[in-house]
Design a protein around this nucleic acid. Structure first.
Lengths: 169, 169
DNA sequence: CTTTAACTTCACACATTTCTGAAAGAAGCG
DNA sequence: CGCTTCTTTCAGAAATGTGTGAAGTTAAAG
């Protein structure tokens, strides 16, 4: 173990820089996977925060972006259930928190995608008919999506079990 | 069954329009899932083609885009193993073909993603340490990715079995 | 070895996306 | 009930991405 966290707060700046490196690197990978930049950065920052929650001002400062940008990013993240909003009682400050079951939800959200794709494929099969090569090819894709939907359900159940066994929370 | 394929080639235009609708719709969904537009359109067109393969000129004409655009799209698709290039012997024409195991490969390609993410998460865990909430949170994410990698492997095996059983090819 | 057909590369124009600053909108506090 | 503080909305500037046309490259055919 090298220079990680020089005991609590001996050097806040270096610590902050290290956090920033991790945040930006993770965010970049999320972007690569299709997420837009600002939501990715906000999500990474929240995941790296001690409490798993930060205020708008904290995010704005840490990521060096305007409050408006944070607002937009949070709106998106809340919509896809990766982040929840908390009103701190007795203040107009709002805290944004990463969901404990973040990726779980993110994957489940893929189900909606799969449904849409299945619909499209079904229409394709109808249009071309199973007596054409195209029709059969598209039908196989449809079968794959159906298979995937079924499998992802049980996969997430196994994850929930695995998680409960290995980790307290 | 309504107006699908009025027996072979009675009305090529209407048929072409119907194909185009399917292609564009499917492409739009691929775009929504993160693929760039032109590769998505090319892939959808190939999937809907009778032979599962088209020449550059055919794609260019059908999608109403320049050869340059097709070239770029195909380069990408070949890179991610969704399409293979075939040289028609005795002609400078090239045919692009959808892989039979398209989605299979697309998913396997995700493995590379997972590895990268795992690396980043491991660094995060090291940086924060398991004695911090952040560290534990990031560690759980790492565990999830490890779990996912393992599960996806067996999932694809099951698909291969399922496919072999239900379909001839 | 030249011609010609097909594909590719590259610079640029157009379109889209993304973030900011300013103004308006909520919500506690005096 | 108005003041203050935080958040959101919106128009526009800046950055980014995407497809085209023209020139360049490769390879078959004469």
């Amino acid at each position: 173990m090298d220079e990680r966290r020089t005991d609590d707060r001996t050097d806040g700046d270096a610590e902050a820089a290290a956090v920033s490196r991790f945040v930006e690197r993770f965010a970049a990978q999320l972007v690569q996977a299709g997420m837009t930049r600002m939501p990715a950065r906000v999500f990474a920052a929240l995941l790296s925060s001690e409490q798993g929650a930060l205020t708008s001002a904290e995010l704005s400062g840490q990521l060096k972006v305007s409050p408006a940008a944070v607002s937009g990013a949070v709106r998106y993240l809340a919509q896809v259930n990766l982040v929840s909003r908390e009103r701190e009682p007795g203040s107009r400050r709002e805290r944004y928190r990463v969901q404990g079951d973040q990726w779980y939800n993110a994957l489940l959200e893929r189900d909606a995608f799969l449904r849409n794709w299945q619909t499209t494929m079904r229409e394709g099969v109808e249009q071309f008919g199973l007596d054409t090569p195209q029709g059969r090819r598209i039908n196989e894709t449809l079968e794959f999506f159906l298979f995937l939907e079924k499998e992802l359900g049980s996969l997430m159940q196994r994850w929930a079990a695995h998680r409960a066994e290995h980790l307290g929370s």
